[in-house]
Design a protein around this nucleic acid. Structure first.
Lengths: 230, 230
DNA sequence: CAAAAAAGAGAGCACCGCTCTTGCTCTGGG
DNA sequence: CCCAGAGCAAGAGCGGTGCTCTCTTTTTTG
């Protein structure tokens, strides 16, 4: 067995998991700014210096939580994508958008951690990139399916954006037309604008029925990326 | 004279301004999380406790900076709106969007302060609301002008959103049709999604020519709120 | 001119991230 | 089997933080 590495390694993995769990709880309750290594250690009945055997700094612990958060959001998006594989692309799109919103509302501090302001002195290491890409890949996949199925309806690009759109398409989804790739990236960013504004209180006293409003806006994003209208 | 209140009041205003200025400098250099009352006091040659005569807490100082940032962004948007009062609404719209982006790129930490994650466990007090509304009012004004001039072209609303859209219109811009008000709020949030993603690094390795990309996306937002296409 | 209000200075509290040293325990190679 | 070394927890301590309290000085005001 590969896990037969010994009791020591298993204990280390367990303590690491316990630290992350406690930290995630504190993060959910207090927010990233208030997450304290000493408090985590206290909760686990250790002394603060012992924690440094597992995470070399508070920022490293935060990075681990960031990756977990990206993964958790990615899983939520993937589940929504796979829930109704035969539905119309526009419905799958809005389902994924609503899953993103739902995850954000359920994990506001984790959402703030990954899509809010970068917390510490600029540490967004490369290791977070694959996890961060997951939800984007889900969106790309839906548009790709639609492109290979019912097709996309998109206006042509202005000349000055054509090279950039081609570059984006080449990097992101070579099988998609350039205008779809560009629209997709814009819609991706705009989706998180909608979610972030609701979550961070900008919609207070402005939008009441946020569910309905978001569903409508997500449908607009779907139209924007060329998914056929209902 | 109203300023003849005495040397004491004037001195107080000057010290308050100096504190805010030093804090703004630190904010621009280090970010909100690293802004330290003690460091501000040190820079001003005072002792930290003296600072509490001017701001009752670190959060109050941050709130003052938040209001200033909202105002600064609002002024930038208003200037862009007024730069070409006779231009087509769609061009004035994109000009304002580009002004918002330009301000954000020039003041990243201040942008993060007002549109990033809410910093500690603190919620923005009521006093920030009017300042926060300025840039929104600019966008509303442009659409209102277009509505009273060349007119708007918008698809009808789905039935389930109609009451919410009417409520939004009533609160925000009673002279606008409900579908314009709803589209406006969505575009407003989406604009800041675009800006935030660029600023917080989500476009790294994805979008290269961000200027062109943003101009195109802002044009899409203009279409979305019903402004006539070029 | 005296009382009151405002302001600054300093000490101090409780917390923070992080480092260093000191022991203890577990593990693996001779 | 045994012991050197690795892994780990604990404690003390450094410099930093926000904030409070007291004391003194200065300025305004009745």
């Amino acid at each position: 067995m590969s896990t037969a590495q010994g009791a020591r390694a298993r204990a280390r993995a367990e303590v690491t998991a316990a630290i992350k769990e406690a930290a995630r709880r504190q993060l959910a309750e207090e927010g990233a700014a208030r997450l304290s290594l000493r408090a985590v250690a206290r909760e686990l009945g250790m002394v603060s210096s012992a924690l440094y055997r597992y995470f070399p700094s508070r920022d490293e612990l935060l990075t681990a939580l960031i990756i977990d958060a990206y993964d958790s959001l990615g899983v939520a998006a993937e589940r929504a994508r796979d829930a109704a594989p035969d539905a119309a692309p526009v419905d799958r799109w809005t389902a994924v958008c609503e899953a993103v919103r739902g995850w954000a509302l359920a994990h506001p501090h984790e959402y703030a951690l990954i899509y809010g302001s970068p917390v510490p002195g600029y540490s967004a290491p490369e290791t977070t990139v694959p996890a961060a890409a997951r939800v984007g890949l889900v969106l790309i996949g839906i548009v790709r399916d639609a492109h290979q199925g019912p097709g996309l309806s998109l206006p042509p690009l202005p000349a000055d954006l054509r090279p950039e759109a081609a570059r984006i398409a080449a990097d992101l989804a070579p099988e998609l037309p350039a205008e779809a790739a560009a629209a997709l990236v814009a819609a991706w960013a705009q989706l998180f604008g909608l979610v972030g504004f609701e979550l961070f209180g900008q919609f207070n006293r402005v939008v009441e029925d946020r569910e309905a409003f978001f569903r409508h806006a997500a449908g607009g994003l779907a139209r924007q990326v060329g998914l056929a209208d209902g």
